[in-house]
Structure formats: structure tokens, C-alpha cells
Amino acid sequence: MKMKTACVTGGSGYIASALIKMLLERGYAVKTTVRNPDDMAKNSHLKHLQALGPLTVLRADLDVEGSFDDAVAGCDYAFLVAASVNLASGEDLEKELIEPSVRGTLNVMRSCVKVGTVRRVVLTSSVAAVFVRPVSLQGDGHVLDEGSWSDVEYLRAEKPTSWGYPVSKVLLEKAACRFAEEHGISLVTVCPVTTIGAAPSLNFNTSVPSSLSLLSGGEVWLGVLKLTERTAGSVPLCHVDDLCRAELFVAEAPAAAGRYICCGLNTTIAELARFLARKYPQYDVMRNLQTIDDELLEKPRACLSSAKLLRGGFEFEHKTLDEIFDNVFEYGKALGIDLPY
């Protein structure tokens, strides 16, 4: 039998590296793209992954038209994971982040049309494209599913913290959907929540430092955690292995279509603090919690629902805080997060 081949863009990144590992372990031949293959500081993990199976590392840039042609040629599936990330409120995020994000996504999809072998494109977006609204969620029982979209008009008008990121995700999703319909591409979009767990890449990500901020006491990352709860109405979590399993599931499932939220558990900062205090008593979690001066939720006001994914036949393997945090502490130390004990 011919070995299935997949392209994973952004191989130097956290989620992409975990997805590459899983694909190789499941017998796929994998082609991945990075901006500079010679940069071993960012890409050394790809050398180690090549021991697992056929992995080809190619140079490509989201800003360069046609640079993904070789990467997607001959591939059955294309996983679009590479993305521009700029969480700061810069002077011109429209030009620095939003336009490049949309342009880069369509650049890869044009290459998929050109080569003609790709059976399905799996776009990795974010629940940042789902839950950002003008008014914080009040009361309990909100269920946010794939029909929910962040409010782009509000974000552009009010420019709250990190506003460019959710705008970019909404616009690139909608642009990709239009392009897929116009060119007959089978497109599925996955919207991950805060994703944690060990991955081959040791490069920067935001989710692991924020999830461990109650241990490290890092004020910036505690702020990210607080912003997530205030905006989303919960702290939604997913283990990176479950996210990769979900991406592969929707790639291979013939009936998969549209958006899929990937969330293993909706929790709160208060619940997370109690869990971490029990699991790591050597850390002063409760003192770090006191630096978050806003009123904290005792239970989630909102649920980021993965019901559509579950109805399709997918099952999460990490459903509790204990399971989701199974190897995050050790991975955080490997990333250089200040965890002295």
C-alpha cells in the first residue's frame, strides 16, 4: 500500500511539532515547512523526529507566493498550523498581523489547488475566533459552539488587549472558507482552546507558561490566565495529544466538515489553583493567586462545547485536570519556566 503523506506547516512550532510526531508514529510520511531550515536553535527537534519515520523539512514563507508548492505536492492532507502571532496591541495590527495572517493562509491553499493531490485541508484556528464579545458573559449556562464568532466590529472599534489576534483568526477562517468553496477544496477547521502538554518543540508558546503561572508567579502569564477567564467565561483546556488526535480524526473522517471546537475541559482559575496547590504543595499557589485582584469565577459561566466533535465519534483521552496536566510541569521546566522545585 502507498504510504499516506501529510504536509504540516510551521514545523518549528509547539502544536505542529506534536502533530508531526503523531503522524510519523501512525505511519505517515510527513513534509513540514519552516522559514529557515538551517536555524537549528528552532528546528533541532525535527532532526530527532526524523528517527521516527520519513520526515522532509522544506523552506517556505507565508508571505512568499508559491513557496508551499513543493511542500504540499503529492500530499493527501495539508495541516495549516503555521500562523503569525502578535498578542501585543501594536500601532498597526491590520498590516502587521491581520492582513499577513489572511494572506498567508490563502497562499498555502492556492498551492493546494495548484498541485491537485490534497484531499483535505485542515486549518488550525483558535477559540479566540469564537468567544470575544462586547460585553463579558454574565450569569451561568452559556454554551459556545461552532456557530459562535468573535465580534470583529467591536474588536476593531474598542481595541481591547490583544484584539488583533481574534480578528485575524475570524477573518482568515472566513477567507479560507470562501476560497475552499470557490475552488472545490475539502476544508475542515479546528479551533483549539488553551492547549498544554509536552511537545517535541521547545520554542515559545503562550499556553504552557500561562497554565503554569500559578506555580511560577509570572505576572505577565497570570495576566494572560486572568484575561482568558474574563473573556471566555472559563479557562478552557485541552491536552496537545488530544488536539493532534482531533486534527487527524477530522482529516480522515469522510463526513467531517466545517468548524470543530477542541476543548477537553472547562475550568476556572480558582479550581485550577486548588488543584495545583494539592499537586505541588511546595509552591505557594495561594499567594500567587492573590496577585490576581479581579473577582474570580467559582464555576465556569460559559462552556466551550466540543459536542460536534464528540457526535462525529471522537473521544478525548485527557478529560480531568490530572490527566491534562500529566506532563506539563516537566515540559515547563524544559522550556525554562521558573519552576525551582
Rank of each mutant, 00 (worst) to 15 (best):
V190M: 07
E317Q: 15
Q50V: 01
G139Y: 00
D69E: 11
L87C: 09
R133E: 15
G10E: 08
A71K: 08
R245S: 04
E229H: 04
N36E: 10
L202P: 06
D338I: 11
D338A: 11
P254Y: 01
Q50E: 12
E323V: 01
S305R: 00
A255N: 12
N205W: 08
L237P: 15
E330K: 14
S211W: 09
L339I: 09
V72S: 08
V118F: 01
L93G: 11
S162I: 10
K299D: 12
L215T: 10
L123S: 07
L248C: 05
E91A: 15
D76L: 03
H318W: 13
D293E: 14
F314T: 04
S201R: 00
L296I: 02
T161R: 14
L296H: 08
C262G: 07
L309G: 14
P160Y: 05
S306Y: 03
V208P: 06
D76R: 05
G10P: 07
L304P: 09
L309R: 13
L304S: 11
G27Y: 00
R133W: 11
N266W: 02
E25H: 05
R230N: 14
R35F: 05
R26H: 14
S84Y: 15
M109Y: 03
A157Y: 11
L171M: 13
L289V: 06
K47P: 08
Y14L: 03
Y154L: 03
R274S: 14
P166I: 07
G139D: 02
H239E: 03
V190T: 09
V115W: 06
H318D: 07
A273T: 05
A18M: 06
C238T: 13
R110S: 10
I324H: 11
S234E: 15
F325G: 08
S186V: 09
K114G: 08
R110H: 10
S210T: 12
M40E: 14
V193H: 05
G312R: 15
L106Q: 06
E252V: 05
S213N: 04
A16E: 02
L172V: 09
G141R: 00
T32A: 05
C112E: 05
G104S: 07
T189I: 04
L310R: 15
D284Y: 10
P134K: 01
D61S: 13
S84L: 13
V152W: 00
L243I: 00
V127Y: 10
K4A: 15
L97G: 02
G104A: 08
V121R: 09
A176E: 01
G141T: 00
L265H: 08
D76W: 04
A253G: 05
A246G: 01
S125K: 01
K159C: 06
A29Y: 02
F329A: 04
L296S: 11
K226G: 09
G104V: 00
T33M: 07
V102S: 12
E317F: 13
L225D: 03
N107Y: 03
V240M: 05
L309M: 13
F325T: 06
V328D: 03
S67T: 02
A307Y: 08
V235N: 15
A253P: 04
L52Q: 12
D151F: 01
A277Q: 14
I20L: 10
R287E: 14
F249T: 01
A198Y: 12
K4Y: 14
V250R: 07
C244S: 01
P54N: 15
